[in-house]
């Protein structure tokens, strides 16, 4: 008599098992693929794959619009706001660049020795072209335009956490979030591209102290 409820429970478990296994397998796959349900896009996955914050910025040799060689990942004693840019972009970059220009203007009271805004060309634009674009944006003293110095620019961008995809039609898609690198050369914060500008400026001031 007492075995009947146990048998019934075991039958229920056996019946439900395939449903649980199938649902569980899809959930596990989705959890792995989205880094624990935190990264649903190609861009957020690139950020997650670069590692948790704070993390050391990768070595990233670049050349600025004046032809000077710099290393974006170096511990050079100043904060850097780094954003990828694509000068020929027909989509979002002009908006992102205009937003960065307004952010740099809001932070113009912070000396460039303390904080530098940096736009990194994903298209490896030569310094003279960067200089032209920089002048078109008003040649601000606290905003630098740079291009990767080596062949492995995409790799350095990815190591920083910036997702980049070279489309078959020749155009380039990339993340437009702003990466904050501290004076010790660590990525300490990522500021979303679609955040209210006042909030972004306040977040930068909070980070730089």
């Amino acid at each position: 008599m007492s075995a009947a409820p146990g048998r019934s429970r075991s039958r229920r478990v056996r019946t439900a098992l395939p449903v649980v296994l199938v649902a569980g397998a899809w959930l596990a796959l989705a959890a792995w693929w989205t880094h624990g349900f935190t990264a649903f896009t190609f861009f957020s996955a690139a950020m997650a794959e670069a590692g948790p914050l704070p993390r050391p910025a990768p070595r990233f040799p670049v050349i600025d619009q004046a032809g000077r060689h710099l290393d974006l990942g170096a511990a050079d004693g100043r904060f850097r706001l780094v954003q990828a840019m694509y000068v020929r972009c027909p989509d979002l970059c002009p908006l992102a660049m205009s937003r960065l220009q307004r952010l740099a203007a809001r932070l113009a009271d912070v000396p460039p020795e303390r904080l530098m805004t940096v736009s990194v060309s994903v298209d490896h634009d030569p310094p003279d072209r960067l200089h032209t674009v920089w002048k078109a944006y008003g040649a601000p003293a606290n905003w630098t335009f740079v291009t990767p110095a080596g062949e492995d620019g995409d790799e350095a961008l990815r190591a920083l956490g910036i997702g980049i995809y070279r489309r078959p039609d020749g155009l380039i898609n990339h993340a437009v979030d702003i990466f904050v690198i501290d004076p010790a050369g660590r990525v300490v914060r990522i500021l979303p591209a679609d955040e209210d500008l006042a909030k972004t400026a306040a977040a930068v001031r909070e980070v730089i102290g």
């Binding site: 449903v19 199938v22 649902a23 397998a25 959930l27 989205t34 995809y165």
Partner: peptide, 27 residues
């Protein structure tokens, strides 16, 4: 068999659609 109230088939369908609708999966 192994499909109580059709829920195993349903779980597969919902799982497949849910997974392939993730923007990263589309990429």
């Amino acid at each position: 068999r192994g499909n109580p109230h059709g829920l195993t088939g349903l779980a597969w369908t919902l799982g497949a659609f849910g997974f392939w609708m993730i923007p990263r999966s589309v990429d």
